[in-house]
Design a binder for these strands. Structure first.
Lengths: 355, 355
DNA sequence: CCTTAGCACTCTCGGGCCGAGACTGCTAAG
DNA sequence: CTTAGCAGTCTCGGCCCGAGAGTGCTAAGG
């Protein structure tokens, strides 16, 4: 194999042939022959000429042959080039935009419901797997703390973030606390910690503990006791995966053992989160292809992802997972649009209409 | 085929042979031959004799032959008989009990986390699909109502049930309500509606609306406005499905199209809920085999399910889904135990230790 | 020098054939 | 009633083969 040249050195004809091969393969899932390219592309060239071009492209590492007498298949590099400069990004069709708005902003409900709808939309509209990483409450801005007496010394602590996400945890306190006092403590905590991220709140709490250790009155001590438990709770971000069954329709998973590895991967939420989280730095849609990720390595899978947020703040990531052979022309704008739509839906639902 | 006799008419020998065939098939997934039964069962009979017995069992509808020169496979009736009176139910092994306790009661967290752990345990310990139906809040006893101002006229309403389940919804009110008043209204609603099921609370609300329409003061009117929205919210029960990938390991799903249908079924949550819900009337473990359910019909799947609850009240259902060829001897006691363990965990976590 | 028609070559895929192996049902003897 | 023996049946894997698809190379033509 020859060293790959600067992609810009490719002649327009080379590029057109490569574009055609990738586009055709994405639709057909079968090796693309020189003849089919010659027929479809209106280059006015014969199959023999196309064959020469394709042989060059293979030398340069953009195409590969499953076996001697088969057509060509795009490599990872071909997909990258295709996405960067060969394909023409399509607009998300009007009906899809409308459909998304209807399901995201239309039905209110709570934040969790909206996130679920988003992952379902991703999967439904792309026929791939939709993934949404829900925010770690530790990173979000605290809005309110509520304490609900359950029974005995158990108290349910409810944290509400400004984006409307909630997390709950049962706390067991050393003594029974009457309901009125719980309300007072909750108010106190809300006043003191609302508006800052839970991470900061935790720091502030530690400072309070150090400074005022001596002159704490009983109620303050109790409040701090609650705060200690409450702020410790917000765990890792969660993940929603939707449409795993869509994958079984793809011919690349005809072989069961691959399908099984795929599903096992999805089930491993921590790994999924760590991969998707890379997306959080750097805006815009990002694409990982094939071996770019541990996740998709041997499986020839791709991940198209972006972030969503609440106001300025990025909250989490969302994306589509499927075989590398994926309709990037449609999927990339879809992910882009859905990231914005989700951000908008959260803003509208939880921060008053932007009239 | 001859009319099936009363199963009690089966001779002890017939029963032993049938038991052996079912047990062997469950482990091997392959048609069972007369020879293998003769060797394993210590009846001191030759394969030829077993063949005669098996031919009878086939006539009576308990066994079937995939093709002329293959061994026998159990029918649905055979499974039923096996479960009712042939198998010897095993105790859940000590290590599993311990493992379950550790993961269910050990780690506190909130109700949702416990439910997730339960479905995961079901799947992990059975190598089948674990399913848990989470309670519909409409059926549970209300513990508390909290109102959190979000911004503008948006208010987040948090409902807490006595078993520690929460549901949230964003409400848009006609005018901005100050925080103190929200707290007062929340207290009012909590006092008036705590301790009754949400269904009853809804009825009570309607009565209040009818009676006091004329002499309502402003605050009461506002409270009722909130209650109307808040109590309308608790939706359908949710469902947690875990371990779908376990299924792909079973030889009965070697064929992709069946696997796909299976996954589609799991994704259809409303249908799953309606099937599992049948379990809610009538205690104890129940088993549906093959065509017993729309769900499992053509797929030759079985469902082993039971209920869990909080105190006296049944809250939801939980179970295991897998091929009819399932280790009922282990799975049935496992489901039974997990139903109790989950009830216990909810009680311990949310109602003070039963010391 | 680039393009193209023609041709030989290679590799896959599906069908048909065959023999080994696995069970059964039947029959006749113990 | 049980059982050994045997013939009969069906599946499964391996093998071969021909059709089809595509390529690379070569030589002729613009």
């Amino acid at each position: 194999m020859v060293d790959r040249p600067d992609p810009r050195k490719l002649s327009p004809r080379d590029r057109e042939v490569l574009r055609q091969v990738v586009a055709t393969y994405i639709l057909s899932a079968e090796p693309v022959s020189s003849r089919s390219v010659a027929k479809q592309a209106d280059l006015g060239l014969s199959a023999a000429t196309i064959r020469n071009v394709m042989a060059d492209l293979e030398d340069w590492g953009f195409l590969a042959q499953p076996h001697t007498s088969a057509g060509r298949v795009p490599t990872r590099d071909a997909y990258h080039l295709f996405i960067e400069s060969l394909m023409e990004v399509r607009r998300v069709p009007a009906w899809q935009r409308r459909y998304i708005e209807d399901h995201l902003s239309g039905a209110p409900g709570d934040a969790e419901q909206i996130m679920g709808a988003a992952s379902h939309l991703l999967s439904e509209l792309s026929h791939q797997v939709g993934v949404v990483v829900t925010p770690s409450l530790a990173e979000t801005v605290l809005k309110s703390v509520e304490l609900v007496p359950l029974s005995g010394r158990k108290v349910l602590c409810v944290l509400v973030s400004s984006a409307g996400f909630t997390d709950t945890k049962v706390i067991e306190v050393p003594e029974v606390v009457p309901r009125e006092e719980l309300i007072r403590i909750a108010s106190y905590l809300t006043e003191n910690f609302a508006g800052v991220s839970i991470r900061e709140a935790r720091d502030r709490l530690l400072r309070m503990l150090a400074e005022e250790r001596a002159q704490m009155d009983r109620q303050l001590a109790l409040a701090i006791e609650f705060a200690k438990h409450a702020l410790a709770l917000p765990g890792d971000p969660g993940i929603l995966v939707d449409g795993a069954s869509e994958l079984l329709a793809h011919p690349e998973l005809a072989d069961i053992s691959r399908a099984r590895r795929m599903f096992d991967t999805f089930a491993d939420k921590t790994r999924m989160v760590s991969i998707l989280s890379r997306c959080l730095q750097g805006g815009g849609v990002r694409v990982w292809i094939g071996e770019d990720t541990d996740l998709t390595s041997e499986l020839d899978f791709s991940l198209v992802a972006t972030t969503y947020g609440f106001g300025e703040r990025p909250l989490g990531a969302l994306g589509i997972l499927g075989p590398s052979r994926m309709e990037y022309e449609k999927v990339i704008p879809l992910v882009d649009y859905l990231g914005e739509a989700l951000s908008r839906a959260l803003a509208e639902t939880f921060a008053g209409r932007t009239e």
